[in-house]
Nucleic acid binder design. Structure first.
Lengths: 151, 151
DNA sequence: TTAATAACGGATAAATTTGTCCATTAATAT
DNA sequence: ATATTAATGGACAAATTTATCCGTTATTAA
């Protein structure tokens, strides 16, 4: 009754990353995709997914076109410039890198919390990972059916 | 309006770790501490902190005694056996180690999400860090005023 | 045995996050 | 022009997390 969650990113961010990977993969095949298809492909609630895609669109991570033949897509040329960090930033901000592991507002080298150094190691690794992992680099295995976006 | 949070642990868990460090330090000085003192020392809402301390107590991480002269404490002898992982487990469970970075229910070597390997690296490091950092090891610098639990 | 102290536990409220619904807007095709 | 398609945006609802309030229980001391 006080026990809960424990996830690295918000649900919105998780959906955002999953959706981006799916859209990126389909864009490489020159396919635009609609809201319904995205939601089904990543097993996410459709109405909420709509908000997620809007957020991605507002942040220029994906393109969206209205009307018949419309849908969501990503520029093939730009695909290698979209990193996980880009998406995480759009949903969860940079708290996860910058924020204190114990929730202190002011926590830095000068005035560190007791676990500052230990967390810095982890957070820096996470930051580097997110900043060097492009969405494009994740599509190949997904297309081959080696990785999954639902279940 | 969809942008939010981004913290490694729940607020409850953050308070739980901070409270444990404070209580551990005071226990090393053979001082029991009351709810009010803990809340003030870690700058947390007093009523919520009460729940936090109950949770720590139920999980045998701290001792609590009612009545005059009562308060919260930790066994000096046991202090080196309480790791950050112990506290995190009590509040956030083991999702943060075991859970999928993209929120998939089923995500493992056989059926990995697209970022499974990348996340595994980070999560394993986090796990190791939490499992090897004892609360006791954090008290010395706090007592010397080199690290902080508020602000 | 009474009064005082301090943690406990249940109910409830506030805030945030997650999720839904539906009317509107933009684009396309007939 | 009109109908159809598909994303957009606003309001709202549910669920979860964070936080408060207060009466009860246990302990100690007078």
């Amino acid at each position: 009754m006080l026990q809960k969650q424990g996830q690295m990113f918000s649900k919105a961010c998780e959906y955002g990353i999953r959706a981006s990977i799916y859209i990126a993969e389909q864009s490489q095949l020159d396919r635009k995709v609609g809201l319904k298809e995205v939601a089904e492909s990543i097993d996410s609630p459709i109405a909420y997914t709509s908000k997620i895609l809007q957020q991605l669109s507002r942040n220029k991570i994906i393109n969206s076109e209205k009307g018949p033949g419309g849908g969501f897509s990503m520029d093939k040329q730009e695909l290698d410039k979209v990193y996980l960090s880009t998406i995480v930033l759009a949903f969860d901000g940079e708290e996860i890198y910058k924020g204190c592991g114990l929730g202190l507002k002011q926590c830095n080298e000068k005035m560190p919390c007791p676990v500052h150094d230990q967390f810095k190691l982890i957070r820096d690794k996470l930051k580097t990972m997110l900043e060097t992992t492009s969405v494009q680099s994740l599509t190949a295995d997904f297309e081959k059916g080696l990785t999954f976006l639902k279940r």
